[in-house]
């Protein structure tokens, strides 16, 4: 029997009326993992890097170079790095944790509408719209807050509400709509890619087990990286636009 993942994340348990889903559970695991990793880096921090610190230094340096290219200055790149890098790292590790053995396959069978379905204990956070939408909302809000901090409230919102001319007013309305569209595109792009990957893996495993999922898993590793990079790059671009005064 084929168990196609459901669009909505499955509830695993409840804490005081709060339903903990399998995607949220994996998010927590990712946070704990990254937290331990960060602590290890901090405790073993050395001016001459080795091992894990080397890997993180390389990753941060690559992100800095990337954002420096977008912002045009190293100073700005360093200033906005924590926000952009957290998006990248959180999305990347959530995506990669989603294809670990046991994730999506270990669970309990439950009856739903007369069908027995597998409810996995863990699922990739990216396959839950709550995760992607939360990140999209944070990113769009973050972009606007950073824009206000950089150029001031009135200057920033001047691009949304402008009465200089009918055209600028219309452009402002379009800008406002595009902010909402950004949230939708951010969230659905990531959700669509990761959820589609999960479905594809399940179908591949059903039709040609052990063989077909292998190249698809490799593809999912790549997709996970690309989606994290796309999310972080787009966030960088939007921040770089927001923090510069427009004419």
């Amino acid at each position: 029997m084929i168990n196609i993942p459901t669009v909505a994340a499955e509830k695993i348990f409840e804490i005081g009326g709060f339903h903990v889903t399998n995607t949220l559970l994996l998010s927590w695991i990712v946070i704990v993992f990254l937290g331990i990793l960060a602590l290890c880096i901090k405790l073993g921090f050395n001016a001459i890097p080795k091992g894990l610190q080397n890997l993180f230094e390389w990753m941060i340096e690559q992100l800095l170079n990337l954002t420096e290219g977008i912002f045009g200055s190293r100073k700005d790149a360093e200033k906005y790095l924590p926000f952009i890098a957290t998006i990248f790292i959180f999305v990347l590790f959530s995506n990669w944790f989603g294809i670990l053995p046991g994730v999506g396959s270990l669970g309990v069978y439950e009856e739903h509408n007369g069908h027995t379905i597998l409810v996995p204990f863990f699922r990739s956070a990216g396959s839950d719209l709550n995760f992607t939408l939360a990140l999209a909302v944070i990113t769009v809000l973050g972009v606007n807050i950073l824009g206000i901090v950089a150029i001031g409230f009135f200057k920033h919102f001047g691009k949304f509400i402008s009465f200089k001319s009918p055209i600028s007013f219309f452009v402002g309305i379009l800008e406002l709509i595009s902010e909402v569209a950004r949230m939708v595109s951010f969230s659905f792009r990531l959700f669509g890619n990761i959820f589609a990957g999960e479905v594809m893996l399940v179908i591949a495993a059903f039709f040609l087990p052990y063989v077909l999922p292998v190249p698809l898993l490799a593809l999912e590793i790549f997709v996970g990286l690309i989606q994290a990079a796309v999310f972080a790059i787009l966030a960088s671009v939007f921040i770089s636009i927001a923090v510069k005064e427009h004419h």
Binding site: A9, F18, H19, T21, L24, S27, W28, I31, T86, I87, F90, A125, D128, N130, F131, L133, A134, L135, V137, I138
Partner: peptide
């Protein structure tokens, strides 16, 4: 609630 939880996670 889940949105908020994911936001807090971030």
């Amino acid at each position: 609630k889940l949105l908020l939880a994911q936001g807090i996670n971030f």
